[in-house]
Design a binder for these strands. Structure first.
Lengths: 115, 115
DNA sequence: GTAAGACCTGACGCTAACGTCAGATGCAAG
DNA sequence: CTTGCATCTGACGTTAGCGTCAGGTCTTAC
């Protein structure tokens, strides 16, 4: 498929896809006219990127774990990195839950005042 | 206390405190010499900021809910905003847990391969 | 009174994941 | 063949929460 279709199917912008390619995350064939051509599997791949970005990983980090995503094998360094990122995500979740609690306090206190 | 002490007690940089003042989040008295002087309550206040920043709120958003933090009262707009931010945080937590799950899959798959 | 820090006000730098614009080309339809 | 939309390659713009440097002032210990 071409870039526009991939963008809409994966829920990202065309610009984002070109950026992923720049970062070495996403390859593509080219048509004789020079346009990018993606396989169907690219949709899932891009969604994986989005998920990792949403979790706060950098392009570099995602690139480092790509072989792991592609064929399910890892070296020691990758295993350490995966575990490290999991810890980081857990910490982020804890922060967010803390903030949620603070917000909740404000809401409860305010509703008490409001009756 | 002066700015350096507040910074170390709240766990942020001196620059950050001046930035919070710029954004209208943090007031201070001034000594005759022109240096900032903070009350003890500023420590907790700054920690609240950090928690909100960590949850992805902008300075503007935090400023908008400050009166709520200060005296526990809200107007309708603030109540709506607090609820909205809570929803946003919940969504972020869900994203993170999704990403965590994906990572977990990679880890499990890789450990299967590794034996 | 002076040396050493802490603090002051600008003001530019930084980062990362894109947004956006410009000017040119590819491609399917009528 | 041309109309018109999708796509192409640069390349500069954006955003937000600070980092950092420059040059000058305040405070405190000796």
């Amino acid at each position: 498929m071409r870039i526009g279709e991939l963008a809409s199917r994966a829920g990202v912008s065309v610009r984002a896809l070109r950026y992923y390619e720049e970062q070495g995350l996403l390859e593509s064939e080219r048509t004789p006219g020079g346009q990018r051509d993606y396989p169907d599997t690219a949709v899932e791949r891009v969604r994986f990127f989005q998920s990792m970005y949403a979790a706060g990983l950098s392009s570099r980090r995602i690139a480092d774990m790509l072989s792991c995503f592609d064929n399910g094998t890892t070296n020691a360094q990758q295993r350490a990195m995966l575990a490290e990122e999991r810890v980081r995500i857990d910490a982020r979740i804890a922060e967010l839950m803390g903030a949620r609690g603070r917000l909740e306090e404000l809401i409860v206190a305010a509703s008490d005042r409001a009756g």
